[in-house]
Design a protein around this nucleic acid. Structure first.
Length: 203
DNA sequence: GAGTAGATCCTCT
DNA sequence: GAGGATCTACTCA
């Protein structure tokens, strides 16, 4: 199967929910120091910028940390949460519209032994790339990679022609954003039904 | 098996 | 100086 990098025009569209849905089944690839790791996206969450309380850019908040969200779509936004976990986001939409998509879970494809090394796990189980913290760790993503363009050699999203049937894609409220009030209830999380790598409780 | 607390540090107020 | 887009382990049942 052949991998095709997603064009920047894929990210630079208005409807972040639509993009999030289309990301399902796509492949995230990192290549650091000649080592390739990749995985298929099976879970992600959309953050709808200034109108979304759960977003870092809610109400037009603009700081050094989230500056990249205000740039063109197609950049990586990585930040540290709880002092421990690196969270990987894809910036979408056009300049000055700070939308982003948090990748929550992958199904590992390439470089599993490398992921085991990075995460300190002995064997590949479902926790390897389940949840945003683990995902970033397994792929070697850290905050210094925030702001990287997603069409480069080291970090990009790709399409190998595989798609999940629409009936296998489900939407639900997002996870871990209870502080966001009623915005926490928005069905902005998308995942592949029945996939063991999806985080949270199975329904 | 379910529920809860602790880890741990950067960023913004 | 407080709190967070999380994960894990440990308690208790």
């Amino acid at each position: 199967m052949s991998l095709k990098k997603l064009p920047l025009s894929f990210y630079q569209r208005e409807n972040v929910l639509q993009i999030a849905k289309e990301l399902m089944g796509k492949i995230l690839v990192t290549q650091w120091n000649g080592i390739t790791t990749s995985g298929r996206i099976v879970e992600c969450e959309a953050y709808a910028g200034v109108i979304d309380k759960a977003s870092h850019a809610y109400g037009g908040r603009r700081t050094n940390r989230n500056e990249i969200m205000y740039d063109d779509g197609g950049y990586a936004y990585v930040y540290l949460c709880y002092g421990i976990h690196h969270l990987f986001n894809v910036v979408t939409n056009i300049r000055d519209i700070p939308n982003a998509i948090l990748l929550r879970s992958l199904e590992p494809l390439k470089g599993v032994p490398e992921m085991l090394l990075r995460t300190g796990k002995k064997k590949a189980d479902y926790t390897l790339t389940r949840g945003p913290g683990n995902l970033s760790k397994a792929l070697g993503i850290v905050t210094s990679q925030s702001g990287m363009i997603l069409s480069g050699k080291q970090l990009f999203l790709a399409d190998d022609g595989f798609t999940y049937p629409a009936k296998d894609i489900a939407a639900s409220p997002r996870i871990g954003v209870d502080y966001a009030g009623k915005d926490a209830l928005l069905p902005y999380r998308f995942y592949v039904k029945g996939n063991p790598y999806v985080s949270g409780k199975p329904k």
